[in-house]
Design a protein around this nucleic acid. Structure first.
Lengths: 178, 178
DNA sequence: GTCTATATGCTGATAGAC
DNA sequence: GTCTATCAGCATATAGAC
């Protein structure tokens, strides 16, 4: 796994992006191949089954999470602000993998459900270490989740409304921290 | 439409429930028929195509929304608390239809996207009329959205964590209102 | 109004050429 | 490693019996 073939990476990226933007139903192997600009056979060489794609996405997600937890724990602005700010989908790798995991969990794929529970628990723990009050920490986390939920939704209204408000929303977070 | 056949209602309910619990991929006409305890042909008599099911769900959603907006506007506890409290999925009709709409929107179905933008805008307007400050209102709405997002997710952690906290989360809402 | 049986097309996966 | 060709199975939808 030192240097995975480029086609493999492209296919995995296309798979995650498609899940997020088009949903599980539209995320066929053929669509993944088209998105990655390779053939169906090419995809199935690197990922022998469709579930293998999901498993690879899961592993990549876990790796990005470890990285994110480290950054969040040491963020100069504090974990709460870091968490809420980055919940507004910015197109980062973590965003893409997280959205893909949510779609897979919504399709009742147990490994994704487990991974999401694990990361939510970890995120909440970091926020709570900063904030102290358990329920203020939960409220802050939920603001982040709400932001994610809106930003990962198709349509323009959410984007217009909350993108403009991010800075002031972080001030609401400060009010809850106090 | 005075008294729609019972089988029709059962099929529509099964369709919405399946979308929420199992996802779009698992929501096949056969699964809907099984959930409603009728045959595939029976489903397709009342809903000539799969999209007809989605359209019926959309209309039912809109009706529930009108009802909810009226209740929310006149809630003795105030729109904010009402909104956040009912965002924690209770199994109401609105919950079921809303979750179904979210899944359809995530599958890029434009009518669902439009309907969700409309209701979010309406909810935010009511909260803002009570709260005054635009960004406090947005934060409150996002707490509700976060709650919905967690409660509609499979898995036990969210349920255990937030179900116990609802009362104290409403106190956080009060802090933001002030 | 509801059923069974069937046609058609799409999706996941395999085989084998290059 | 990547492609094309092909198969088996499944999902949507239709036809027609009851």
């Amino acid at each position: 796994m030192a240097r995975p073939p480029k086609a493999r990476d492209k296919a995995l990226a296309a798979y995650c992006a498609l899940l997020g933007t088009e949903g599980e139903r539209a995320t066929t192997i053929e669509a993944v191949a088209a998105g990655a600009d390779i053939s169906k056979g090419g995809v199935l060489y690197h990922f022998p089954s469709k579930e293998a794609l999901a498993e690879a996405a899961l592993e990549a997600f876990r790796e990005e999470c470890e990285r994110d937890l480290a950054t969040m724990a040491e963020a100069p602005e504090g974990p709460s602000r870091h968490y809420v700010r980055t919940s507004w989908t910015s197109g980062s790798d973590l965003d893409t993998y997280y959205t893909a995991m949510v779609r897979l969990a919504q399709g009742s794929w147990q490994p994704a459900i487990d991974a999401l529970e694990w990361i939510h628990e970890a995120w909440l723990r970091l926020i709570r270490e900063e904030v102290g009050d358990r329920h203020a920490a939960e409220a802050i986390m939920l603001i982040g989740e709400g932001l994610y939920h809106h930003s990962s939704m198709p349509g323009e209204w959410s984007r217009g409304t909350f993108a403009r408000s991010l800075k002031q929303l972080l001030e609401q977070v400060d009010r809850l921290k106090a």
